[in-house]
């Protein structure tokens, strides 16, 4: 692994996650730029066969241990740190997901290595590893030097979902697999008791062709009917970003984003949604995205195809009226 670019491969519930493929695609580019091999590090228990899905890498380091059956951050970080001890990889790319969040930080602490979160892109320039980071809710872009070749340990780089297309990192082939032995202590301090599957909502958002999404700009639960009327006019359903769900204005089954659903409708109308990376993760692949936000700097406009700078609450009834009028005109024509 010395000098290599490494990717932490996430496996969850028996499968390699989509974000792992995205991260492998980015890792492949960086490794090629640096002229070094790409290594995937796969922690787990009795899941060696998953290594064949990591064919975008040149090699796989598999860490097998019963305590790695579920991804508990401290256990996983200890295992990866042990596997990397004595090696000097240039960088380790870790997906910033609900599964792996915290692992990168802990590896960095254990190895005394620099950590850079929020990475959207990584490149090698004049031998330097530079990370482009999206922070402050998507409002600021920072270019960060992510550790020199002679620096203290590998650079641990937290990668936002969506950094690359998963298809570019998906390759099923036989790759050399090395087993890494680790010693982990079973303290029993954290145990997964059960998974709680999402309750089936009244609407399956993933099957909707039109989604009207509301965010903090909805201002008040009393304004929710405005969104419902617009969704009805467009023939779609209402969904929301995290703040709306946390407020209890919409049920969990209507959440789009990192902790909610990933949707790909033909039309996604984002109303009063700022566009934090966690939300964009769930809707960026919609065929047509329209965003309405009072803040012209709102990051949602960076993924929208059409944008309106305005108050979502004022815009909703106007848009509903316009849609209804257009439909009525169409019927008369």
């Amino acid at each position: 692994m010395t000098g290599n670019i490494c990717v932490l491969a996430e496996q969850w519930r028996g499968q390699i996650t989509e974000v792992t493929y995205e991260t492998l695609a980015l890792g492949r580019e960086v490794a090629d730029q640096a002229g070094v091999p790409l290594t995937a590090i796969l922690p787990g228990s009795h899941c060696r066969e998953l290594a064949r899905f990591l064919g975008a890498a040149d090699a796989v380091v598999y860490i097998d241990h019963p305590l790695l059956a579920e991804t508990v951050p401290q256990t996983c970080a200890e295992a990866v740190a042990q596997a990397m001890a004595g090696e000097r990889p240039r960088a380790l790319l870790v997906p910033l997901t609900n599964i792996s969040l915290g692992i990168g930080t802990l590896i960095g602490v254990r190895l005394g290595a620099p950590v850079v979160n929020f990475c959207r892109d990584i490149r090698v320039a004049d031998g330097r590893l530079l990370a482009d980071c999206v922070m402050y809710g998507g409002k600021i872009e920072a270019t960060v030097e992510a550790g020199a070749p002679s620096g203290p340990g590998p650079a641990i780089l937290g990668i936002w979902p969506g950094a690359r297309q998963a298809e570019k990192g998906r390759a099923e082939r036989e790759v050399p697999v090395t087993d890494a032995a680790v010693v982990l202590e079973d303290t029993g301090a954290i145990r997964l008791c059960r998974y709680i599957e999402p309750e089936a909502g009244d609407v399956d958002l993933t099957k909707q062709e039109v989604l009207v999404a509301v965010g903090r700009g909805l201002q008040d639960r009393a304004n929710l009917p405005l969104a419902e009327e617009l969704a009805r006019a467009l023939g779609g359903a209402v969904c929301g970003s995290r703040p709306v769900i946390d407020q209890g204005w919409l049920p969990l089954s209507r959440q789009v984003g990192k902790s909610g659903l990933t949707v790909k409708p033909k039309l996604y109308v984002a109303l009063g949604i700022s566009g934090a990376p966690e939300h964009i993760e769930g809707m960026k692949d919609a065929a047509l995205i329209v965003a309405v936000n009072s803040d012209p700097q709102a990051p949602i406009f960076s993924v929208a195809h059409y944008g309106i700078v305005g108050d979502a609450v004022e815009t909703m009834p106007a848009l509903t009226a316009a849609v209804e009028a257009r439909k009525a005109a169409g019927q008369h024509a």
């Binding site: 850079v116 920072a142 270019t143 030097e145 406009f301 059409y306």
Partner: peptide
């Protein structure tokens, strides 16, 4: 961790 450059995201260029 060394920040080389920081700038405001200019999102309107896309939409």
């Amino acid at each position: 961790v060394g920040v080389v450059e920081m700038k405001r995201n200019e999102p309107a260029g896309h939409a």
